[in-house]
Design a protein around this nucleic acid. Sequence first.
DNA 1: TAATTTTGTACAAACGTTTGTGCAAAATTT
DNA 2: AAATTTTGCACAAACGTTTGTACAAAATTA
Lengths: 336, 336
Amino acid sequence: MQKTSITDIAEITGLSITTVSRVLSGKAEQYRIGKKSQEKVREAAQKLHYVPNHFAANLRTGKSNTLALIIPSLNNPFFAGIASEINTELRKFNYITIISDSDENVEIEKMELLQMTARNIEGLIIVPCGDQWQHIKEIQDQRIPVVCIDRYFEHLDIPYISTDNYEGANKATQYLIENGHSKITCIQGVQTSTPNRLRVKGFTDAMREAGHKEINIVGDDFTFQNGYLETKLLLQQKQRPTAIFTLSNTIAMGCMKALKEENIHVPNDISLITFDDHPYLDYLSTPLSCIAQPVSDISKIAVKFLLSKIQNKDINTSQVLLKPSMKLRDSIRKIN
Amino acid sequence: MQKTSITDIAEITGLSITTVSRVLSGKAEQYRIGKKSQEKVREAAQKLHYVPNHFAANLRTGKSNTLALIIPSLNNPFFAGIASEINTELRKFNYITIISDSDENVEIEKMELLQMTARNIEGLIIVPCGDQWQHIKEIQDQRIPVVCIDRYFEHLDIPYISTDNYEGANKATQYLIENGHSKITCIQGVQTSTPNRLRVKGFTDAMREAGHKEINIVGDDFTFQNGYLETKLLLQQKQRPTAIFTLSNTIAMGCMKALKEENIHVPNDISLITFDDHPYLDYLSTPLSCIAQPVSDISKIAVKFLLSKIQNKDINTSQVLLKPSMKLRDSIRKIN
DNA sequence: TAATTTTGTACAAACGTTTGTGCAAAATTT
DNA sequence: AAATTTTGCACAAACGTTTGTACAAAATTA
């Protein structure tokens, strides 16, 4: 069947498209449309299976009721969880959220941003996937409110909500040191990402503060493969670390696969702590200790920031780091 | 800065909006726009930071280049993985995909569908979250191509791609029986979902075929909590099963938490197999055997079905069940 | 030189809503 | 009875693109 428009309904009811539009967009009372006319319109709309054309309405009003959320990977439970919460929260405010997966690829991120702005989005929440920021800055320059999550750019005046990665990593490292570990290897992710850089700095500072001169940082990617390969390399060395600190769960999983293949047990042979929590960590062969990020808080605050910017056009730039928490399970052995 | 339109560029370049539109939408050669004019237009567009208005274009052309994907939960790695693959695949065909999370709530699903159709989507891939289908059928009646994934409606002529849930569950149960188990409990998910119903039937048939009269099926939800509570109840009974078959990973996780709390070891005290794979399953305290669904194939075929329907308006209804595979890890003990 | 073709570009309608403005009839007030 | 107000509705412009159609100048052909 052919698509029904307001014009069709006007013809059937003998009313004008103005009257029909006002009834269907909930403004009947405001414009004193008679009860009988309202009923005729509603009946006709139902009978003809009328579906409003959001594009036409948006063209005229300039309001899309659409927001965009760009995350680097739907396959990462951390980001999937954030996406789920943000989507649910924004729905409460009658926004539709276009969720986009940039696949950890800045060129895709740029393309997606173009697609989003062409659709007249009224706001953007983004987990940037690289260190390029100009294309994100340009969105803000177009007077589209932007909020960064997790990864952000310190020197830009774009609001962001993240975890205090430095503090989380610092505490994780301190804990290892307090348990007698001095030979600790950190397996990092993407070096240019701000969370990674701060986690590395947290690790490094904790080591230095404890007087440990030998600081070992390896890896360059938040992937399973990176965790796997770097752990394999570590285990080939004469002098192995007594503890490993992985900067993401995907790295931790790769690390654990390599350890298992080499018949090295956590925590008896080596201790392991990771960044980020997940329910699975409880049921691993060795339940993993970790630094947990407050995912729910991050999501809700990001939404709050964005809506505040949209509604009040407030120019204040909120840049907040939330406190992570350390979750001790069974993967750290005391050796002093 | 104010939004730039084609009209602004026309004014700056002294050309008509027709010329400008044709240059910017890649039709300059086709309409013999001179080189100098093209250059003037492109320069002005860049200088004024022109962003096309997709809504206006769509209003005129009737083409949105937009597809919709509705999944019941972004927090479920199975669906998040599917969403990721489908999104990546459709991007290759220059579609933007609106990903929507219905939160296992059919009313939200209906609302989301309304929002999608109002945005002139050209196709829909959906994992239905309940047993109501009329609102999905209506989408197809509006001549919007629809493909169901994972959960579907057998009696409808809507294309779907899923796993042969019956066969997967049947084989899992047979394997348990071959390993000497006869007291097997199945912890199921949402009873009205087609995959669940078929998995239960596969389990039941395998049990009956082996001459086992006592068939125990519990639960009613694909959640951690359901798995946890039902396992707790099981462990209170005098006669416990020797094996548990959970119909999803989230149920399996809840089950494992309960077992751990009761100090019951897998597979020494009880065997466990689940439906669905995940990389984590390898590193659990007991690596879990499972029936793995071909997620990548499901995603790619769903995309293929949808694009085929969009492009060729082909009325054939493809309804395909893919073969699952059994992945044996360490969670099943042979007891005969 | 005139007729025809090619080139480069423009006009204006269309898409489907929304909304500022306004009209005519009915009701009320003076 | 006339003036004013209220009620119920309609006209037409607007949003920003796309595109069918067409025009005028330049180039080519006969």
